[in-house]
Simulated assay, not measured.
Amino acid sequence: MKTGYKLPEVTFHTRVRDESIEGPNPFRWEDKTTSDYFKGKRVILFSLPGAFTPTCSTYQLPGFEKGFAEFQAEGIDAIYCMSVNDSFVMNKWAQDQKLENVGVIPDGSGEFTRRVGMLVRKDNLGFGLRSWRYAAIVNDGVVEAWFEEPGLCDNHSEDPYGESAPETLLAWLKEANAEQAA
């Protein structure tokens, strides 16, 4: 995946809250496409190996959530977290993390992740197929900047983190915006 690349058009099977549904699970299925999330917006997309995992839940997702206002000030319209998890898991994780600013995208089948070249095996952790950790700044569906953790491979013995950290993206945005202003 490189700068200038148009994101692949896929359909995500999501569960959305529907107040007309009674009971403990007031959600309905709603298919959303890549265009639904990215068309006409400048967004941050970050992807990680799995909901509820330590680095993802302790650093990466909370960092983007807490830094949302700073990202908005640098011209970002939305921030999305993607994982090769189903919508039930992603929604529960969003609830657990008390998300108000970051949206979650369930790539349950891994189709989007495969098509951007980030699908890896994590059988060594009992995960199966998952996403390699990365982040991107996407402008109207086109990759403006790409931040990939080093060492992309199946069954990596570590979970590198730093290139796709919120701080890295914020620094890039500030520098890019300063260059445009000059």
Rank of each mutant, 00 (worst) to 15 (best):
residue 107 D to E: 05
residue 81 C to M: 05
residue 93 W to G: 01
residue 62 P to R: 13
residue 106 P to S: 10
residue 117 G to H: 05
residue 26 P to L: 08
residue 147 F to A: 09
residue 63 G to W: 03
residue 37 Y to R: 02
residue 118 M to E: 04
residue 126 G to E: 06
residue 166 P to W: 08
residue 149 E to K: 07
residue 137 I to Q: 04
residue 86 D to Y: 09
residue 130 R to Q: 09
residue 140 D to P: 05
residue 47 S to I: 10
residue 134 Y to H: 14
residue 14 T to R: 14
residue 120 V to I: 08
residue 86 D to F: 07
residue 179 E to G: 13
residue 169 L to R: 03
residue 61 L to G: 02
residue 158 E to I: 13
residue 112 F to D: 04
residue 171 A to N: 11
residue 20 S to C: 06
residue 140 D to F: 09
residue 81 C to I: 03
residue 90 M to Y: 03
residue 96 D to E: 15
residue 133 R to K: 09
residue 45 L to K: 01
residue 34 T to K: 02
residue 118 M to T: 06
residue 81 C to R: 03
residue 74 E to Q: 12
residue 107 D to M: 04
residue 170 L to M: 02
residue 75 G to H: 01
residue 43 V to P: 01
residue 84 V to P: 07
residue 178 A to M: 07
residue 169 L to A: 01
residue 4 G to N: 01
residue 58 T to N: 14
residue 168 T to P: 05
residue 40 G to F: 00
residue 176 A to R: 10
residue 65 E to L: 05
residue 42 R to H: 06
residue 174 K to Q: 12
residue 73 A to N: 12
residue 56 C to S: 07
residue 174 K to G: 08
residue 76 I to H: 06
residue 60 Q to K: 11
residue 33 T to W: 09
residue 150 P to F: 06
residue 113 T to K: 06
residue 63 G to F: 05
residue 172 W to D: 03
residue 78 A to M: 04
residue 67 G to L: 03
residue 23 G to C: 06
residue 77 D to S: 11
residue 81 C to P: 03
residue 49 P to G: 10
residue 144 E to V: 05
residue 41 K to D: 03
residue 13 H to A: 12
residue 150 P to G: 08
residue 33 T to H: 08
residue 70 E to H: 15
residue 77 D to T: 12
residue 172 W to G: 02
residue 172 W to N: 05
residue 101 N to Y: 05
residue 11 T to D: 03
residue 52 F to W: 08
residue 85 N to D: 14
residue 73 A to I: 12
residue 24 P to C: 01
residue 135 A to L: 11
residue 67 G to K: 03
